[in-house]
Design a protein around this nucleic acid. Structure first.
Lengths: 146, 146
DNA sequence: GTTATTGCAAAGGCTTTGCACACTT
DNA sequence: AAGTGTGCAAAGCCTTTGCAATAAC
């Protein structure tokens, strides 16, 4: 499938070697969709690909992919979470601090912010792939009750 | 000074006890301005207040203050950094990935984003104290030249 | 053949926790 | 007096690193 071709091209272009481990991590992330913690990825790789992989290798592959800007990293409550960067369709996430649920956010809203920042300050914000934390509607109602 | 009164009121309102440690941590953060890692705070407290404090106490005080929304936490490259939340004047940062410079951003712009998100999705974004990465004007011009 | 990368295990750094004592209320 | 908060030290967790073996180039 096309995913693999994309990974191959990315690694080649960065002067890195094309190893099965890197392809497996990339594949897991591409098919997972959304942010995954390293531990989640580690489990996904073992289950869906049939063979386990040392955690340290997952970390190293992610480091490489991050250098290439193929994945993005966010902080998920003290641990790292990664997502595949879909260059053709930028998207953003609303991450709830209460229940951890992730939902997509209309890119137009952020684009408007980026435009406003640029107009006001000349600063170009990197908003390709953004995660905003907060509280989802149901958690907010739960908190109000308590 | 007024800072102390603010802290006293905050702790009282949360049903927490007013201890010297919590006041010292709050004071250090109020006077530091901007984001400080826990280690930086720990050192600031020791130096500027004359007496050291166990790291664990700093952590616990910060946890309490964070629950009260008196401080905000951000991820500073794997470790936590905290800043005092100035309710009277919320502020945000544009952090340049090129030169590392930090500059303030008009809060109104983010408030507009927060309102739009809430209207569209019901999700309440925590935008009290936000850091946006990107590229400042001079770095962008430098990159364009190269 | 060279050199980057992996696997394993051990170390590292930041943060949290258990428990007895002290202090706020 | 009652119960929360502190200090100390130890444990916990996520992540990184050293080194020999392996695989990509």
């Amino acid at each position: 499938m096309s995913c693999e071709g994309e990974t191959v091209a990315l690694l080649r272009s960065g002067g890195h070697r094309l190893t099965p481990q890197r392809q497996r991590v990339a594949s897991a992330l591409q098919h997972a969709g959304g942010h995954r913690t390293v531990e989640e990825l580690h489990a996904l790789i073992a289950h869906e690909q049939g063979a386990p992989m040392p955690l340290s290798t997952v970390y190293r592959a992610l480091t490489t992919l991050k250098e290439l800007r193929a994945v993005s990293e966010i902080d998920a409550g003290g641990r790292s979470a990664f997502a595949w960067v879909d260059r053709s369709r930028p998207h953003h996430h609303l991450v709830c601090r209460g229940c951890g649920t992730e939902r997509d956010l209309d890119p137009a809203l952020l684009q408007r912010l980026g435009d406003a920042i640029r107009a006001a300050t000349g600063f170009e914000a990197f908003l390709d792939h953004f995660a905003i934390t907060g509280q989802c509607e149901s958690c907010r109602q739960g908190a109000a009750r308590a």
